[in-house]
Design a protein around this nucleic acid. Structure first.
Lengths: 299, 299
DNA sequence: CTCTGCCATACGGATTACGCATAGGAGCTC
DNA sequence: GAGCTCCTATGCGTAATCCGTATGGCAGAG
């Protein structure tokens, strides 16, 4: 059955005349006559009595009219729902991000997004890149902000990666440290330092980075949070590696010095979506917000 | 938009695959592909993500699914409603009838009808034939049981008349009346009698009938109800004309004698419907009940 | 009795919709 | 990694559908 038939049926019922309904609907009268006949055949009941001065609903037609209006109303509601999704007056946006991205990049982008589209339901999960990829594939998040090192074999087979920015590593030194005045540092110069490291995730980065420079870092303190990590550094208990992404708001007592570009594998930050999954309007808009914020965070 | 599209959409959403849905729906896969494309175009949103192993609802599709199921359910409900009307598991039957018909003919027919179709809502209005015709034309009753005399100019222009029976006039005499033993009577023999008459309607019948026989009836008593009328006759206060239709259950003390056929204009009882208005299944069934009962009431 | 208003139907042309065959893409297996 | 498999998209030819125009028929109104 065609919904047009129901619209025709409703209009004819209201107007009480095929000719009049044809006028307002932009069809010709014979067309409406045929469509009504088709509807009556489909429903197996005569819906109108044809009177010499127009038509009048039969009992069956009266019964159908209520249903037809309910159906047409619901279809209209469906259209409005989809329009709302399209115009971001409704919908949801499920974001995944790695830890450092949640320092400034993601919250700033989310804030911008919510300002423009307050009706979209937002959610965020923090996880490492590998877990984020799994969640993307499982369809549990719509977009993930993740990072990857150039040579790292990130499985992009079912991902769509959109470049956001580079995220260089900085060395966090206590103010007054012997190297705090330097504009850049080489890793080798830090071989004898005591390190403060986060765990469980970021320890791997330090070890890999250090082994590349030919030394094993001496780790005296391992803490869970960035705040604590930098607190230890500020207290002069050691130094630490800090990604630029997480270093936008450092505490007093800390000096940040970039590593030489050749010394450190600079990781790249991407906005990733699941390949083959069409971006929702929310995802598209949020990627734009991310781009905007990332631009301001680039060195 | 075609409702078939929504059915296809729902089935594909449930099965997660066009190929599988095509199997169960009896279409080929390319057909479903095109129908979905058409639906997506109509709704202005992509409804499924095409994955290598089938399809998965997008947010828009998820939103539409709820609406689509509501729409399809309501359409199914509409079909069931119409089926119920057709099978007389629902609906209404509005009957109009003249007074005498309500003595036995109509109530018996209604009782038979209700036994077979207890779900149909019944209603009845009593009125004279002229008012019944008006109500039929106005669509206020579905069927009217009315009576007409042969030469009476009943306006049948917008009516459909179905013959039910003849309704001869009887003379009600008190038991022991000088004429009570007769098999038939001539009107002229009753010229000197005292008459008990009903009002307002049936008085006309008496006067017309009597004038045809050349006398003016002497009316001493006029009462409103049949019961009272026959009560006066039984008490020997007069005689009365009683249509056979109303005489099926007379009281003790009364003798009924038919008038000679040539003496009295025998009126005809019809089941009338409005011409051009298709009979509801209830009307058709009730007419059958009326025919049945009328057959038992014929002399 | 003609005239008018309204619905139903026949007909031709154009659009649509189906099935068949096939291309194309991605995962899985050996 | 080559081939296999499973899925969806698309080109093509045919068949059915649908629309508008023209016309017929019925019933009421003047």
């Amino acid at each position: 059955m065609n919904l047009e038939w129901l619209e025709v049926f409703r209009e004819v019922a209201v107007r009480g005349s095929l000719t009049a309904a044809a006028e307002t609907l932009g069809y010709t009268q014979p067309t409406l006559s045929r469509q009504l006949t088709a509807l009556e055949k489909e429903m197996g009941a005569r819906l109108f009595d044809r009177l010499p001065r127009g038509v009048r609903l039969t009992d069956a037609g009266q019964s159908l009219l209520a249903h037809a209006e309910a159906v047409l109303d619901r279809v209209e509601l469906a259209r409005q729902s989809l329009d709302a999704l399209r115009t971001l007056d409704a919908g949801r946006l499920r974001i995944g991000a790695f830890e450092s991205a949640d320092a400034t990049l993601v919250p700033q982008a989310l804030a911008d997004f919510r300002t423009t589209h307050p009706q979209v339901e937002l959610s965020l999960v923090e996880a490492n890149t590998s877990a984020l990829v799994d969640r993307l594939r499982a369809g549990e998040v719509d977009l993930a902000v993740l990072s990857a090192y150039p040579q790292q074999g990130l499985d992009t087979s079912r991902l769509e990666l959109h470049y956001l920015m580079k995220d260089a590593l900085l060395v966090a030194l206590p103010d007054g440290h012997r190297l705090a005045h330097r504009r850049t540092l080489r890793l080798a110069e830090l071989a004898e330092e005591s390190w403060v490291e986060g765990f469980p995730d970021s320890a791997a980065t330090l070890h890999e980075t250090a082994s590349r420079a030919g030394f094993r870092p001496r780790i005296d303190f391992a803490v869970r949070e960035w705040t604590a990590k930098l607190g230890f550094v500020a207290a002069g208990l050691g130094i630490a590696l800090v990604p630029r992404l997480a270093a936008t708001a450092t505490r007093p007592g800390i000096t940040l010095v970039p590593l030489r570009a050749t010394d450190t594998p600079v990781r790249t930050v991407y906005a990733a979506t699941s390949r083959g999954v069409t971006d929702t309007p929310a995802v598209t808009a949020f990627r734009s917000c991310l781009d905007q914020v990332a631009k301001t965070l680039r060195p």
